[in-house]
Design a protein around this nucleic acid. Structure first.
Lengths: 186, 186
DNA sequence: ATCGTGACGACACGACCTGTCATGACGATG
DNA sequence: CATCGTCATGACAGGTCGTGTCGTCACGAT
């Protein structure tokens, strides 16, 4: 073999090591590639930009869209949201509390990462909105439902990241849903 | 006077002209400053980065926080949200439909601007959340309320930008609020 | 008359990101 | 076995963004 395998994984690992050692903005792409034994140019073949080494590979929007499309046809949109969120909460985040909290801390500490994080949420909204329209939901309503789903997901994730010891992500989600209900009923 | 006045305004005007002529990403900061008769360095004294020439000067988070703080003390949080949104809709956006639509189009066409736009929404949420906590609302509930406010504002703004001829921003806001109510009551 | 201040220019520099071409291992195909 | 295409990577040049630093000159205050 001419080159060591798993270039992408090596880059990602080297990047997170360096972020932990000296922070995100203080580490440069050449530093990352040097540690991974590759060139700068190769980094940008795997990641569109420096931020994507943190966000990349998640595929959350695609996953959400698929789950929405596959949900039973007789469910109301908000019931679908609830179903999808429960599945994601149990499958994706169970036991990942420590890691999730660390990641949120890195993101919150850097404006450029906050930019990207916020857009990832918007990407999720767009994908979910399109998936609901595909199910026959009128577009404006689909937009509201998708936004509500993202609101629930994001609020619960942030809350859980600050305290993942005492409650599971699913429990937090239920709390936030209850709060949402209370606000909109008054 | 050694220099012409209104440097900031001149930069902004030159920038929007060039964005209209050749698109956002195709215009460089030196092009903008050349047209404004200034140097590149001066551009970055007025704007933190190239994107801020589009978003800067709005001060929406501060404005929202002030309105929330000044609302009558006996109002429920969501009533405050409604009050604030109505004021912003009438005062800030009346008659600005064409301009708003054009701006949204520029933003949606560029990933880097979508990043920043999404973060501006998050900035708004944080400011509103803090303002509600200041009013004595528990933090998680304050977060949900702030998110709901941003959801309403953003959804209505996008909807209105696509069709500002037939309805005022206030009317769109009422529609979106009605939809939100319907979703969360089922 | 002198001095401080503030806006701007001039210049250098590092980091980010891209375009383009070369290279060599590997597998398919004859 | 020979050849050929493909694919991952290297090598290098270059453009844009954003910042640090210092000089310069008008203006107003003392």
């Amino acid at each position: 073999m001419r080159w060591a395998p798993d270039s992408r994984a090596r880059l990602q690992r080297a990047a997170f090591e360096l972020f932990a050692e000296q922070g995100y903005s203080a580490t440069t792409v050449p530093q990352i590639t040097a540690r991974a034994g590759l060139t700068t140019r190769t980094f940008f073949r795997y990641f569109a930009d420096k931020r994507e080494v943190i966000f990349g590979g998640n595929e959350i929007p695609e996953r959400a869209a698929r789950l929405i499309a596959e949900a039973p046809a007789d469910l109301e949109p908000m019931e679908v949201v609830r179903l999808v969120l429960d599945r994601v909460a149990t499958e994706q985040f169970a036991g990942q509390g420590e890691q999730t909290a660390a990641l949120r801390a890195i993101i919150h500490a850097n404006d450029s990462l906050r930019d990207r994080d916020a857009r990832k949420r918007d990407d999720l909204v767009r994908a979910a909105r399109a998936a609901f329209i595909e199910r026959g939901v009128p577009s404006l309503r689909a937009g509201v439902v998708a936004e509500l789903g993202a609101l629930l997901f994001h609020t619960a994730l942030e809350e859980w990241a600050t305290d993942h010891e005492s409650r599971s992500m699913t429990v937090v989600l239920d709390q936030v849903m209850a709060l949402l209900d209370a606000e909109t009923h008054a």
